[in-house]
Design a protein around this nucleic acid. Sequence first.
DNA 1: TCAATCTAGTAGATCGATTCACTCACATTC
DNA 2: GAATGTGAGTGAATCGATCTACTAGATTGA
Lengths: 361, 361
Amino acid sequence: MHARGAGAGSRVTLQTVADVVGVSRATVSNAYNRPERLGAELREQILDAARQLGYPGPNPAARQLRLGRSGMVGLLFTEPLSYAFSDPAAVLFLGAVARECETANAGLLLLPSPPNSDMARTLRGAVVDSMCIYSMPEDHEAVQAVMERQLPTVFVDQPRIRGTAFVGVDDRHGGRLVGEHVTALGHHNVGILTPRLLADDYVGPVGDDRLAASTFRIFKERFSGIRDALRHGPLPDVRITTQERNNTPEDGEAGAHVLLDSEPRPTAILGLTDQLALGALRAARARGLSVPGDLTLTGFDDIPEAATSDPPLTTIQQPLVEKGTAAGRLLLDLLQGGPAKEEMLNIRLLVRESSGPAREG
Amino acid sequence: MHARGAGAGSRVTLQTVADVVGVSRATVSNAYNRPERLGAELREQILDAARQLGYPGPNPAARQLRLGRSGMVGLLFTEPLSYAFSDPAAVLFLGAVARECETANAGLLLLPSPPNSDMARTLRGAVVDSMCIYSMPEDHEAVQAVMERQLPTVFVDQPRIRGTAFVGVDDRHGGRLVGEHVTALGHHNVGILTPRLLADDYVGPVGDDRLAASTFRIFKERFSGIRDALRHGPLPDVRITTQERNNTPEDGEAGAHVLLDSEPRPTAILGLTDQLALGALRAARARGLSVPGDLTLTGFDDIPEAATSDPPLTTIQQPLVEKGTAAGRLLLDLLQGGPAKEEMLNIRLLVRESSGPAREG
DNA sequence: TCAATCTAGTAGATCGATTCACTCACATTC
DNA sequence: GAATGTGAGTGAATCGATCTACTAGATTGA
């Protein structure tokens, strides 16, 4: 016996209200959704009765079943959802998506992806009209599950699937820009810090096979771009470390220490993300290495922190906010029956003070 | 004629699949939701047929209507939703709520609150099992709309409504701590920076009536706390500026300039939030004032930036992450039929380097 | 051998709203 | 005065799944 509602034993529905007022169900529905279709005083009377009865308004699930749409956009995210709020790039992106949704009065549903539980079920149950997939590995079961639902879907960064809407940048080109930059500065001995390349929790050096097998398209591309560039210079000795877990400064720091312990010590460390590069900066400081005097450091993304670090980070700028805006807009377009476009946004090399000429000898 | 689905003119439902396989609707449903209730090979057969037919899985709206629950938690936020991602305190809070939801495998629905459109309708339409209201003015129509839906609801910070679940801190006490701190340092001439106190867009000095009428409980309380403390010292000359729009450093900077232009110039500026205080710091720097030499500055919240600013900000530390965790947990508890608890979290004064003794007269 | 138990699957009621096609009463127009 | 419109409200079909009983047949037990 719940002490909740006003009175009756059973639940209050449209019908209850209709009965009390003495009109039909349809009329009560109209009172809520089509005010112009009934007299003003009758409408007031109905709404009053509803309040009196503690009627919580038309049941959203029922309404949706009938209407066939929910006014909500789903968003699926790499890794734990909570991480979405700790990665600056993600926060910027999400904020922009949210802004777009807001203008269209659509709710934004953040879907969890706890590693253990079965995603497929959760995803099947999400009441959304369209879906945004932000930076997921291409073999993730969730991607499959979403595709099966046949919802209008926008992919951001990865995976990139033919015929689907997509927003991203030319990551390979970005890698090339970084590579050319450090090559031009005379660095021969270069280390690369990359986030996870496969779904496992491996940490350590990355070989060709691992790179080739990677399911994280963007890192693979950035990586390849860097290699493209380095090949043109004198053959460099590339050391690489994959970070376990998330794309955080902490992991970047750990990885950087490994690189800096190796012989010969790299004169430049290229982070495949700013977060990792920022971690490398900490590692350099901890060892008393001057940047860029003793060590050149570059990032990728241009998160706000990259500009305010000491020294500011040389990095590839990609329009994070614009990316969110584009994704949001595409999402809304798809709902209107728009085509599944691909949007490639512009990037550029931002040379700041963390990169400098390689030291002689 | 849509070029979508596999074949038939009409939509594919459970029934379609059932007909094709030659079993009942219930059995197909079981194939998805109760695998143990039917033979393995029949299940495979059904799932295959479903794939073949392009069946997107059980319709979530229908399933919800029947089940009476959605597995989603709604979150309503002060001001534009996009702002949620630009305020560090909010990001921390949201991240923690998200983490909790994730463990329970619940989706987090961020509800938009665009100023113009009618919230009530959007809120009525949101398919959620429970609701979190984060820092809304008490007279906001959305609060009313949510209450009407009679969902289990958790209020955070404001409004605080008797008998509802609540998470917050003793803001008045926090104000008092700050007030006592600056009084002890000998400041007599103190300026206060507060975010919006009423739903209007007023900017300027704040009088008693405005304060009394404020619908933003927490700022009112922080304010009162400061006053409580200052009353015990020699009667201070309190200048106050309300900021239009959001709680941003930009607005704090503008407000600080106004305070610093007044005569006699305050020797201390107390920000009712860190964001505002950080803005004041910029203003001081722009004028070549040393902090805390020429000007003492304090904040409230202890966002991460408060610790890394130069100088680090003296502030009231409140456990932002813990707040989110508590809210999330309460939300989930309520769904299990738990009681509507009130949780008051601890705060403390964090004396850093932005506050110092008042200069001799 | 006859009853009890188990398995695999089914029929049909139900969740709560929306909307199309009508009716009815009354007003307007030529 | 017949034809036409109009505003207000109604009846019934419909959206797509889930779940509680129930049944037919197979297996077990004494």
